[in-house]
Amino acid sequence: MTDSTNQIPDRIRLSFVVNGTKRTLDLVPWTTLLDALRDHLGLTGTKKGCDHGQCGACTVLVDGRRINSCLTLAVMKDGAEITTVEGLAQDGTLHPLQQAFIDHDAFQCGYCTPGQLCSAAGLLSEGRAKDADEIRELMSGNLCRCGAYPNIVAAIQQTMSWP
Rank of each mutant, 00 (worst) to 15 (best):
T2D: 06
Y149D: 07
I67Y: 01
D78E: 07
M1Q: 08
M139W: 08
D3Y: 03
N19T: 12
A132F: 02
L124Q: 11
A129P: 05
C146N: 08
T159G: 00
N68L: 01
C58E: 03
H52L: 15
L61I: 04
E86R: 08
C55Q: 13
R11E: 13
L123W: 02
S69P: 02
V85Q: 07
L43D: 12
I152T: 08
K130W: 00
L27S: 09
T59E: 09
V18Y: 07
L61H: 10
L14D: 04
C55D: 14
L25F: 11
T44R: 10
L33K: 11
T31G: 00
T93R: 15
F107I: 06
S15C: 08
S69Q: 04
G79C: 05
R136N: 09
H95L: 13
R66F: 02
Q90P: 00
F16M: 01
R13I: 01
R11T: 15
T2G: 01
T2A: 09
C70L: 06
C55T: 09
D78N: 15
H95Q: 12
Q54I: 12
T31L: 04
P150W: 13
E137P: 00
I102P: 04
V17M: 08
G20F: 09
L88K: 07
G122W: 05
E137Y: 10
L124N: 04
H40A: 07
P96A: 09
L124I: 15
C55H: 14
T113C: 03
Q7G: 00
F107E: 11
S140M: 01
G92K: 07
G20Q: 10
I12A: 03
M76V: 02
C146Q: 06
G110P: 07
L73Y: 14
V62A: 15
K22E: 15
I8L: 08
H52E: 15
V62F: 07
G141F: 09
G92T: 06
D105W: 01
N6S: 06
S15H: 12
D35Y: 14
Y149G: 01
N19F: 06
Q98D: 10
Q7H: 08
G42N: 10
S125T: 15
D10L: 11
N151I: 00
N151S: 13
P163V: 10
N151Y: 01
D91V: 01
H95A: 14
V62C: 14
A121T: 11
N6R: 13
L73W: 09
I156N: 00
D91H: 15
Y111S: 07
L34C: 11
Y111M: 05
R128P: 00
N68T: 02
T113A: 13
Q116T: 05
I8A: 07
P96R: 12
Q90A: 13
T31V: 14
A155Y: 09
G115R: 03
G79A: 12
T5I: 05
C144T: 04
N68C: 08
Q90E: 13
T93F: 02
G45N: 12
Q157P: 00
V28W: 00
Q158R: 12
W30V: 05
P163G: 03
L41R: 13
R38I: 09
Y149F: 15
R65H: 11
W30A: 14
R11C: 02
V17H: 02
R66N: 03
G110A: 05
L27M: 04
K22Q: 15
G49F: 12
V18P: 04
V60F: 08
L71Q: 03
T44H: 02
P9W: 09
K47T: 04
V28T: 14
G147D: 02
V17E: 14
